[in-house]
Design a protein around this nucleic acid. Structure first.
Length: 345
RNA sequence: UCCUCGGUAGCUCAAUGGCAGAGCAUGCGGCUGUUAACCGCAGGGUUGUAGGUUCGAAUCCUACCCGGGGAG
């Protein structure tokens, strides 16, 4: 499995995890990162994986996305954000300083700064105010990292996150402000929150124009196979996304010829593989009819096979993109792939 | 043979005289830094049959058919 389970467990002892209830609850994403075979850093595209020198870096988000996704259960302050648990109503505060502390405990290779991800659409005044808050938090995260040491032998990197919604000037200002803070890598945040794909690409363009070329550029929360290629074409190096695993659990698999909704009746008697020449357990050992059956009956095996397949596919796609970049053929190759990958089978 | 309970969507069941509904199933759609094995939409009915009462019957009455339980 191309996930970071082992590395994470190695980096943080079981006792430390057990004793660190704060960490387990605070970083919801990270918690899932090693408990579910779902989250993973999908891979890097632009050859910068060599710069990082890892095959499978462990990346932990700060909880900034939950400022957006759990907006109904949180309150924002200059100091940080307070979440109210939907389980028992208990309160948890995230501050730039304590999310760094948590990520230190987790020992992730890449730590993310705490940010506020505003919804789409949002008024410019709000997005601007939010962007300034994110910038102040970014500085505080950087300071927190400088004032603390890792708990393990390996170095931990910190990435900053740009915001600015879908406003060109704000995106530019945010990208510059984050780049000027001299993080180890620069992330594009606040996208894939419901805006049209064209806006997402436009905002990505603005950021990658401003970001330094010798540091990884990370587009957070994206995306579909086509999204990945379009973003790589705009200079993005790395991604993360729930799509390969969440969609797999909900019966959708991605293939080199397009997307398949396994729940559709038409697969009931299709005894072909999803892609006979592709290297995943699903493709090599299981027919679409069998997968259809597993998904339709709610068998957990179906979700697992589909998840493994999709992760294999996304990793393959990134590897392929790397190869094309190194060959110098990416620009000619990707438009046809975008068209193919966007199809529905 | 008698008593009794029941028969409503593919299935399990609501609606007790006033617009026939739900869950599941089926057919689809959605899912983008995971509160999501989740969410949404659609199709689907001569209310067992035949009569009757009533302005109006799934609902009340009669007969019959089918099924569960009981008695003999």
């Amino acid at each position: 499995m191309p996930v970071g389970t082992q590395a994470t467990v190695k980096a943080v002892s079981q006792d430390e995890l057990r004793n660190s209830i704060k960490a387990r609850i605070i970083l919801g994403n990270t918690y899932h990162l090693f408990l579910r075979p779902g989250n993973n850093v999908i891979s890097m595209a632009g050859g910068l994986h060599q710069f990082m020198n890892w095959d499978r870096p462990i990346l932990t988000d700060s909880g900034g996305y939950q400022v957006f996704s759990l907006a109904a259960n949180r309150k924002l302050h200059e100091r940080g954000v307070i979440f109210k648990s939907h389980i028992d109503g208990s309160k948890y505060e995230f501050t730039p300083e304590n999310v760094i502390e948590t990520q230190r405990i987790l020992g992730s290779d890449i730590m993310m700064a705490l940010d506020e991800c505003p919804p789409y659409p949002a008024p410019k005044e709000y997005v601007e105010k939010s962007m300034h808050l994110t910038n102040r938090w970014a500085k505080r995260c950087k300071d927190a990292v400088n004032k603390t040491e890792g708990l393990y032998e390996h170095k931990q990197f910190l990435f900053g996150i740009t915001q600015g919604g879908s406003y060109n000037e704000l995106r530019k200002e945010s990208s510059k402000a984050i780049a000027d803070l001299d993080f180890d890598g620069n992330a594009i945040g606040g996208l894939s929150v419901g805006e049209p794909a064209e806006f997402m690409y436009e905002m990505t363009d603005i950021s990658t124009d401003v970001f330094p070329k010798n540091k990884p550029r990370y587009l957070m929360g994206v995306g579909t196979p086509s999204n990945l290629l379009e973003s790589i074409a705009r200079g993005v190096d790395m991604f993360d996304c729930v799509m390969p695993t969440r969609n797999a659990r909900n019966g959708m698999i991605f293939t080199r010829n397009g997307n398949i909704n396994l729940k559709n009746a038409k697969w009931k008697t299709c005894f072909d593989s999803a892609d006979p020449d592709f290297t995943s357990d699903l493709c090599q050992k299981h027919s679409l009819a069998y997968m259809h059956h597993l998904i339709r009956t709610g068998e957990i095996l179906g979700m697992r096979l589909a998840s493994v397949h999709n992760l294999t596919f996304f990793l393959w796609l990134m590897e392929e993109a790397r190869n094309k970049i190194e060959d110098g053929t990416f620009a000619n190759w990707y438009p046809g792939m975008v068209e193919k990958l966007g199809r529905r089978l």
